[in-house]
Design a binder for these strands. Structure first.
Lengths: 233, 233
DNA sequence: CGGGCAGTTGACCCCGCTCAAGCGCGGTGG
DNA sequence: CCACCGCGCTTGAGCGGGGTCAACTGCCCG
């Protein structure tokens, strides 16, 4: 982790998350003053499960994975954060320790808002509070949906769903391959299955012309069919 | 659903959830005035998945289950609410439709705070807002944990865990049986498995003297061992 | 008395996990 | 520069957890 010399300016920050639009000019200025900014290399851990979280993180650039570690040491990826997303607020607000580990999977520039200041903003600015609340409620909605999926869909259906999710959340490169690049093991960690199962299913999808594979890159060829699979028709 | 004639008085309501302690006397009075109160019989649906939610519900008495319905029509129970709990706020705050169905499993008396009034309280009272936020963040923490469990634990481990959870959340009757009474199918709907699997495992637990069964009633005999099972030792 | 639902048990079998072996590639050290 | 190592990926074999289907029971209620 390196401390950035040119810190993104909050007022003009182009990735500005919706929640910050509720801040007054003054509040934005103070925020820009009290916040910190670091860059992280791929593989660096921002915070670990069951540890205290320093503050609320706001991604200026890069991708972060959030995962829990199971009894056998297997990672279960809960979600990703990307440019413009904030994270770490669950722990700050609930007062609990981190319930996930946050690890950088693509070189990132991330600003840190000290916990106390974040709480102060919530107390002072009800619009800000409201949109943080919205965020956590949206996340809760996703989590509930994922519980249903893991409990009732089979691995094939879930993998198709995850591919579509990665597609809509991260988009594609000019060559039409998914922008996010994950190891097979990480894919397995999202879907909640064994690495070998992901590999077998990916090559099956490839055989069925649903996707194209080039090393770690994935291109979705038939979104309609993938959707149908993910909805277990 | 019947409209109650004697409405619980908010000011002296003994089940008062923490979040309401932040309200001023005036706010409490207004709340008591604008809220509504109904009783629901076992099996009644308060609201359904993908429908608009009328307001935020506060349970004065009874138990409510929250579930999502899978593609095959199978219920996945996400959580329960009991005396003193509030629910429905996720949908009100995020502005989405309900992501679960709320159904009464034990005759309930439930107050309803109109959505607009609930939002107003959040805007006006930052302490109130903060504790609603805490609530949703806590729920998010539980949901994340459950994703890990369903993804990585086997059915036996999950069932043991759920039994312990029901024990701590609902407690026991004087006869030491769990206070909450669920059908085998509902148990399966929590654990995320088939009804037959729950039945087989329950009788296995019984054989191993971990629990005692009497119809729908369950008594935990060896909490230590159940814990060990749930943690996959 | 009969219908229906919750619960139970047995039989069967398939999905997906585990283990093992082999491959390709990039990095490192001699 | 090459040899080696290790990691990520791939494929095959095998098997067991748990899902499905079917049949039966007991109980509640009309």
């Amino acid at each position: 982790m390196t401390i950035k010399n040119e810190i993104p300016n909050c007022e003009y920050c182009f990735v500005k998350n919706d929640i910050f639009r509720h801040l007054t000019k003054d509040e934005t200025d103070v925020l820009a003053y009290v916040k910190n900014c670091n860059t992280y290399k791929k593989g660096e851990t921002i915070y670990s499960e069951n540890n205290r979280v320093a503050g609320v993180y706001c991604i200026n650039e890069g991708i972060v994975k959030h995962y829990k570690t199971g009894t056998e040491g297997k990672e279960q990826i809960i979600r990703f954060s990307k440019k413009g997303d904030i994270f770490g607020f669950r722990s700050i607000i609930s007062g609990d320790l981190a319930c996930t580990t946050a690890k950088v999977i693509e070189e990132s520039t991330i600003c840190i808002i000290p916990a106390t200041h974040f709480i102060k903003l919530i107390k002072d600015n009800s619009g800000f509070a409201m949109s943080v609340m919205k965020l956590s409620c949206k996340e809760l909605g996703f989590a509930n949906k994922y519980i249903l999926d893991i409990a009732q869909k089979n691995v094939r259906e879930r993998l198709a769903e995850i591919l579509l999710l990665l597609h809509t959340n991260f988009g594609v490169n000019p060559n039409n391959y998914l922008k996010i690049s994950l190891t097979r093991e990480e894919l397995a960690g999202i879907v909640g299955t064994a690495t070998e199962s992901v590999i077998r299913l990916l090559s099956e999808f490839k055989k069925d012309k649903l996707i194209e594979l080039d090393k770690r890159q994935i291109k979705l060829l038939d979104i309609t069919k993938l959707k149908r699979i993910s909805e277990s028709y």
